[in-house]
Design a protein around this nucleic acid. Structure first.
Length: 294
DNA sequence: GAAACGTGGTC
DNA sequence: TGACCAAGTTT
């Protein structure tokens, strides 16, 4: 059941955020919608500390969507560095092009238009609409889902995939005033990132400890199905990463042999390379060499 | 709805 | 040491 008095939860968390929020550049008063959008894509499945230097580099080099859209997509992939999931770089470049073509170079402010951009799903559309345009949307990322699972549902962890019920809970807590709702959303995320963490939550520092259903239930351990199970060593993913790293670090097209040396299993190597080409991350040139896409 | 998709730090 | 985790999206 939703809390009958949401303010008893939102109030203390908003107060906590006012005092403990990290000073992140995409939260600065002069942050642009574009800068916020770029940060949201980079932060998908990626820790803040790793994003910071790359974000600054991108903002300096491509301060507007038009600036990025004017460059080859391969430059976005190269500047992505080792953030991981390089298809995000390609999609961000595609989003920049779409913003120029469909929205006159301005990041759109509607959830619907944002959702239509490549690489932007339900979470990121809600996040950009909230954080860049101060709108009222339920923002359900992994941090918020974990906080609400504990606070409201007395579970240590949320379900594997977001459910209708989670959306309902998030909406029931959203303050009516849009700017306040936007601040609330970032505040819950921050609480999840700094206090209500996955592994060792710092409940002693929690502003709503006395209202936490998980705490009141005696912090029962997670009892659902295993939440993970992906090894990395030896996978196609690792192989793709090795291949792409060669192209990122080379500033001109490379011979096939330069790719062959970084992965010994030829069958897997060819499969991974084909995948990269199919994804548009690698361009097979007519002369037999390979390059980042233009 | 499950599976694929990078990378590096932590306990 | 190896499993888990970090502001998800796409197919």
């Amino acid at each position: 059941m939703p809390n009958p008095q949401p303010e008893t939860i939102t109030g203390p968390i908003l107060d906590w955020y006012a005092e403990h929020a990290r000073d992140l550049p995409w939260r600065a008063p002069d942050a642009t919608p574009w800068g916020i959008l770029v940060s949201e894509i980079m932060l998908q499945q990626t820790p803040v500390v790793r994003v910071l230097p790359v974000w600054h580099e991108w903002m300096k080099r491509w301060p507007t969507p038009a600036a990025l859209a004017a460059e080859p997509s391969g430059e976005a992939v190269r500047a992505w560095g080792r953030l991981g999931y390089p298809r995000r770089a390609l999609r961000l470049h595609g989003a920049a092009q779409a913003i120029v073509e469909r929205h006159g170079g301005e990041v759109p402010d509607s959830h619907e238009d944002l959702l239509a951009l490549p690489g932007i799903g339900a979470y990121t559309a809600a996040a950009v609409a909230s954080f860049a345009f101060r709108q009222r949307h339920a923002v359900l990322d992994t941090n918020v889902r974990r906080v609400l699972a504990r606070l409201v549902s007395a579970r240590e962890y949320p379900p594997k995939a977001p459910t209708r019920a989670e959306v309902k809970v998030a909406e029931s807590l959203l303050p009516p005033d849009p700017p306040t709702a936007a601040r609330w959303s970032v505040a819950v995320m921050e609480l999840g990132a700094l206090v209500c963490t996955a592994r060792s939550p710092r409940c002693v520092d929690c502003p709503v400890l006395d209202r936490c259903e998980w705490q009141l239930a005696g912090r029962p351990a997670y009892d659902g199905p295993p939440r993970r199970g992906q090894t990395y060593t030896g996978t196609d993913r690792q192989c793709r990463g090795r291949l792409l790293a060669v192209l990122r670090e080379a500033h001109e097209p490379v011979e096939k042999a330069a790719l062959d040396v970084v992965w010994s299993d030829a069958v897997q190597r060819e499969r991974a390379l084909d995948g990269l080409i199919a994804d548009g991350l690698v361009d097979p040139l007519d002369d037999g060499r390979y390059a980042l896409p233009s």
